[in-house]
Amino acid sequence: MTAIEAIMKRRSVRKFTGEPVTKETVMQLIDAAAAAPSAMNLRPVRFILMDKHDMAKLAATIDQKQPFEQGQWAIAVCADTRGYTGGTGWLEDASAALENILIAATALGLGSLWYGVYRRAAKEPQVRAALNLPEGAECAGIAVIGHAAEEKEGHGAADGKFVLESKWSE
């Protein structure tokens, strides 16, 4: 599958089968994430790999339980902002890493979900506690990984109403 095909095929999956995903496979996803660009090459992004046990503990504290109960792995994409001099660049770095995980998962025939965390009052405190994040560490989001139990149609071409030329127009 080409990179473009994986991008166009990738969809959020909230239902997973029980089919196992090897740790070696999930480490490939982390390698892809680590290859994402980083503002000024400061590399503040950190990855917390969660197995089924860790995911179950998190699921017990949040409303959106199903993906964490069914997925095989979760990768929390965090940033160490202590001493970070790049402003909000860490959030862009983490977002690029998360997207790389999702696209790589699709290319490997896996399903994935971006569980947004940063500045989400209903999620952030529980995730911070579950991951034992210190002050100055932030979690942008968590990629839930597994074999998809639902099939969704891929994306098509960009809708013309979202493409503006030269300047903003209504």
Rank of each mutant, 00 (worst) to 15 (best):
T2I: 00
A3F: 05
A3Q: 08
I4G: 05
R10W: 03
R10Y: 03
R11E: 01
R11N: 01
R11Y: 02
K15L: 08
K15Q: 07
T17K: 00
V21F: 01
K23F: 08
E24N: 08
E24Q: 07
I30Q: 00
D31M: 06
D31S: 13
A32T: 05
A32F: 04
A35F: 10
A35V: 09
A36C: 02
P37W: 00
P37F: 02
S38N: 13
R43S: 07
P44Y: 01
P44W: 00
V45L: 03
R46C: 10
R46V: 06
I48L: 09
L49N: 04
L49T: 03
M50I: 04
K52C: 02
K52Q: 09
K52D: 01
D54Q: 05
A56C: 06
K57P: 03
L58G: 08
T61M: 12
D63W: 07
D63A: 14
Q64C: 12
K65S: 03
Q66P: 01
Q66H: 04
P67Q: 05
E69N: 11
G71D: 03
Q72S: 09
W73V: 00
A76D: 00
V77S: 07
C78W: 01
C78R: 00
T81V: 10
T81P: 05
R82Y: 00
G83N: 06
Y84G: 08
G89S: 05
G89K: 06
G89M: 07
D93K: 12
A94S: 09
S95Q: 07
L98I: 11
E99L: 11
E99I: 10
N100C: 13
L102Y: 05
I103S: 08
A104Q: 15
A104S: 11
A105S: 13
A107I: 02
L113C: 10
W114M: 13
G116K: 11
G116E: 12
V117D: 02
Y118I: 07
Y118F: 14
R119P: 09
R119N: 15
R119S: 14
A121N: 09
A122T: 14
A122D: 15
A122E: 15
E124M: 07
V127Q: 05
R128D: 07
R128S: 04
A129G: 06
A129P: 07
A129K: 15
P134T: 14
G136K: 11
A137V: 15
A137D: 13
E138D: 14
A140D: 05
A140E: 14
I142N: 03
E153D: 14
E153L: 13
G154R: 11
G154N: 11
G156Q: 07
A157H: 12
A157L: 14
A157C: 09
G160R: 13
F162N: 13
F162Y: 12
E165Y: 13
S166M: 11
W168Q: 10
S169M: 12
